[in-house]
Design a protein around this nucleic acid. Sequence first.
RNA 1: GCGGGCGUGGCGGAACUGGUAUACGCGCAGGACUUAAAAUCCUGUGUCCUAGUGACAUGUGGGUUCGAGUCCCACCGCCCGCACCA
Length: 872
Amino acid sequence: MSRYNFKQAEAKWQSVWEDRGCFAAGEGGDKPKYYVLEMFPYPSGRIHMGHVRNYTLGDVVARYKRARGFNVLHPMGWDAFGLPAENAAKENKVRPARWTEQNIATMREQLKSMGLSYDWSREIATCDPDYYRHEQKMFLDFLKQGLVYRKESWVNWDPVENTVLANEQVIDGKGWRSGANVENRLLSQWFMKITAFSEELLQDLETLDRWPARVRLMQEKWIGRSEGAYMFFDFDGRNGGKGGRLEVFTTRPDTIFGASFCAIAANHPLSQDLSEDDADLRAFITECGSAGTSEAAIETAEKIGYDTGVRVRHPFDDERTLPLYVANFVLMEYGTGAIFGCPAHDQRDLEFARKYGLDVLPVVAPRETPQEPIGESFVIEDEAFTDDGVLINSAFLDGLGVEEAKSAIIERLDAADAGRPGVNYRLRDWGISRQRYWGCPIPVIHCPDCGIVPVPEEDLPVVLPEDADLEAPGNPLDNHPTWKDADCPACGKPARRETDTFDTFFESSWYFARFCSPHADTAFTREAADYWLPVDQYIGGIEHAVLHLLYSRFFTRALKQCGYLGIKEPFEGLLTQGMVCHETYRDENGKWLYPDEVEITGDKSARVLDGPQGGSAVTVGRSEKMSKSRKNVVDPESIIETYGADTARLFMLSDSPPDRDLDWTEAGIEGAWRYVNRLWRLVNAPDSKKPFSKFGATRPDMKADEKEFPGLIFTLKEIHKTISKVTEDLERFHFNKAVARIRELTNTLDDLAGNDDSAAWVRRHGLEAIVLLLGPMMPHLTEELWHSLGHETLLADTPWPEAEADLLVEETVTIAVQVNGKLRGTLDLPKDSDDQMAETAALALENVTAAIAGKPIRKVIIVPNRIINVVV
RNA sequence: GCGGGCGUGGCGGAACUGGUAUACGCGCAGGACUUAAAAUCCUGUGUCCUAGUGACAUGUGGGUUCGAGUCCCACCGCCCGCACCA
């Protein structure tokens, strides 16, 4: 039996599409625009299954929208800066630029072999000076707008990568890529003022109704807005020393009368001041710093404090003073780095107070109940009371509820000069300096006289030197003998270039805009950006829910402020795809094995592939995300080599919904392969004598045949129902359901009997529908079949099929008949039958009368065209 | 600890706003073709039994309803995010 020659077909159609420029995008025309974008890859060397899934999903959307008459922009490029290139330079003595270039060449060919409908003329690589010169210009514009600034700050230092990490890049106290414990270091760093947009970034999440709720929620939590008050506590210095005013942030200003201490972070400026003449405090601060930020340390860390001896005055009660502690659980990075402690109503403060014998004065008591009037009987034991209640022991606040008390105290803050209402965010400014070579140079010059001077725009780009030494420890640009030497653009004296480079999230924060006009002399033209942006559908991994997606949202606002573009939100729709997983295998010694080193012998059992007898037993582990370390990877190239791109694409779409994890299985890809061949045979080796290409487009008159061949009409209806359902499924990204429905139609066509012209026409009509519907999913096979069916045009240029409305209407419906909620039979009735008639018919069913068994009928529930339930 | 999501056959998963649970695929079993195998095709396949127009089944236990996989409450398990955030 002949088989589909995918190798020949895939190569042929790929070159036809390319030669005819099928997927080149241009602005203008009457068609509505549609910009579909998949997250561009880091050129690590070879594509992996995660890429295959991501880009298959994107290609289905792109090809579908094109068929639906949209002017589609579907570009691809490379997120080409990053540390692996530097590591490769060290290991293999190859320049990062060369290594990256080679990887891009390999991966481009691999992506092309998948038959993805990209406009390759728009390809970009972020390590290209022609790309990064524009972001250097943006940086200078941000500087003018006050959106970027430099400050000395404590940073997360990754000792393995020898660089700074953003807070978002620290996971459980470890570097997101190296996994090394992150250290604290004080460095002078460039920051982007993302916090200037905290409120906007939070509020506008509500407008992103085509984003997954969970991503919006993650961003909401990350921004972490909390309302409360900033409050002041005045204090006198120790031993008559310098006094001052301590500012704290609290979300519970209502509990101010329950305050029994204040505490500040170890790296709070006041801690530093006080430690100057206090050796014990210096020792304590060191202890706090060395406790480490590993998750184990944080979880088990006991709350410890150091009593500075300073007493702060209660803002609403001159008679009261509170001790000031330096405490390990107070974070300098949040709020003002200082708190007041109210042990009765905060669990952390309670633990601290118990440890140091501080007062625990309840100021909120549970509301009065008939059993328990509000009284002095309310005592705090081991648990702080954090629920709503009634204020007590609180002077003018007594008797108020928590919310009322908050408002009341906030109103008095100003008059009492005790503080101000305020909002605080967890979000911190984005530190963008990295001490790495393979990134975009930050275009400023440090002059001993003029300070920080921007590189003049006509001198951009500041290009990376090709001869930096990447093997010496430290920052390669800083180590370079001459690169950093530059004359001050302001005064002309010798000065020094900034040697830090941008965090690589900088490049990915605006690449979607560059794709609009990738060859422009500016970052992008306003015209092209106005036409294409925002991205209508963005597709990528959930791992970027906070990092990349939040930075891009911020960047778009910053660019808008600088007049680059007119939109706030870059991505209107977002689809986050699940991971590609595979079973794991270990041999007797616990060593990981690749799937192709293993022979599956049964359910959850396997042995080492080793000659005809097979080797030793293998432990089959649960399916986990494909990773090199566990060796549970399958190489896309070998899959495409064996089964073809279309088979791989079909499998990626058919087994799981896109947002869920997908299990890669040998059986699954085989199943997809079988279907590919089955479809090919249906078209190329039909049961009838005549090949399908010989049937004209004229539809036989089947009205006359309806009685004679009800199967024909039934099948015709199924064809159009499938068109309608699949269209709906694709609109909602239910690709797995779409595949299932198309397979159902394939089964129906297979069952269609008859060899006359009418039957052959219906069969051909059905096959055409299948080919059209599968077009976005399996573009090569369907293009091939489209031609076998006698078409001269390209399927890629063919509009999406339309379901004929009158074929979607059912004349009869099957109604379920229940007795007391249990199914007792079904009834075929004309659609929209009269209720009375339906009831009579239902009660006449033999099985129904048996179930009723003469009992009196209490009620009959009739849902038209659906169900009849007889209650007895 | 807090927040969110998910629990449906041997497996991946269907089931629109409560209305015939298990579509489609995988796997498995039997059969056809073949000297044989592969490929292909056909048939069957939730569980149980007394085999029926039967009973029981959507993590567990309750509830609402004529009717619950779907809604409500409690619990169990798994996954993800955040984590001393004042």
